[in-house]
Simulated assay, not measured.
Amino acid sequence: MITPIQHVKKLENNTNNVHVLTFNDQMEYVVKFHLLRHRKALVNEWLAYCLAKYLQLPIPASKIVEIPRDVYLTIPELNDLPYVKHHIALQYKMNRVNGYSASTVNEIINNEQLAGIIALDYWLCNTDRTRNNILLKGISKNQYHLSIIDQTKCFGSTSWTVSDLENLPEGILESSTHQMMARFITSEVKFKEQLEIIQAIPMLLIDEILSFIPECWMLTKKERKKSDC
């Protein structure tokens, strides 16, 4: 298991629970910290990450990590908050820009994965697929590889309740980023294919994903059961 050894910086243009840390493998990771006011954010992130990996979608490698108390206390924004041991770390991707920073996108080379991203967002009711939450790696002029980040607002909220899950919206998610990606999808059949794959996901897999969620993230048995449906 990797262990953090040094806080590097707070991630720019983000909330105070996202920081870059150096770990004992000498690599830098973006760490998303569990905060009580966003108590479902990491639950959402972990569930969406594992499902995206199962669907072979482009998403940075992530893992649940332990942050020692002495390292936790070196982060100013967390000093006055209760200590929590487990958080999520994802590989820090260099040489990538978000969707707002790419002036012109003429081609996405992994366009066969885009329908899967949109289908997953709808399945998990991810209401925050903005251009801030995609990463573009330049391949050549105006040609990019697209990956997704930040699934903290799945199920419409970073602090959802069981009653919220019972009343999720069923209409169109207003996302200009989805519209941008849809331009590069070659056939509507791609959506049908992805929906069939999602519908065939075994419930035991979701059970296993939820079993890794630490107790300190405070996901109750009732909430586990409901998010498993």
Rank of each mutant, 00 (worst) to 15 (best):
I88N: 00
I88V: 13
L90Q: 14
L90T: 14
Y92P: 02
Y92C: 11
M94V: 03
M94K: 13
R96Y: 08
V97Y: 11
Y100W: 02
S101V: 12
S103N: 15
S103V: 14
T104K: 11
V105C: 08
E107S: 15
I108C: 11
N110P: 07
L114K: 01
A119H: 04
L120M: 09
D121M: 08
N126P: 01
N126Y: 07
T127W: 07
T127N: 06
T127L: 12
D128Y: 02
D128I: 02
D128M: 08
R129S: 08
T130E: 11
R131F: 13
N132G: 15
N132E: 14
N133A: 15
N133P: 04
L135K: 06
L136P: 14
K137V: 05
K137P: 10
K137S: 14
S140N: 15
S140Q: 01
N142I: 09
N142M: 00
Q143I: 07
Y144G: 03
H145I: 10
H145L: 03
L146G: 12
L146C: 02
I149A: 06
I149W: 06
I149P: 05
D150H: 06
K153R: 04
T158Y: 01
T158N: 05
S159W: 03
T161C: 07
V162M: 09
S163F: 10
S163N: 15
L165N: 09
E166F: 03
N167P: 12
L168Y: 06
P169R: 05
G171C: 03
I172E: 13
I172V: 05
L173G: 01
L173S: 00
S176A: 06
H178V: 13
M181S: 10
M181V: 03
M181I: 08
A182E: 04
A182H: 12
F184M: 01
I185Q: 05
T186S: 14
T186E: 04
S187I: 07
V189K: 11
K190P: 11
F191R: 08
F191P: 01
E193T: 12
L195Q: 09
L195E: 12
E196L: 10
I197G: 03
I197N: 12
I198R: 10
Q199G: 13
Q199T: 15
I201C: 02
L204C: 12
L205D: 03
L210T: 01
L210D: 13
S211F: 04
S211R: 05
S211H: 01
S211W: 01
I213E: 00
M218F: 12
K221D: 15
K221P: 12
K222S: 15
R224L: 09
K225H: 15
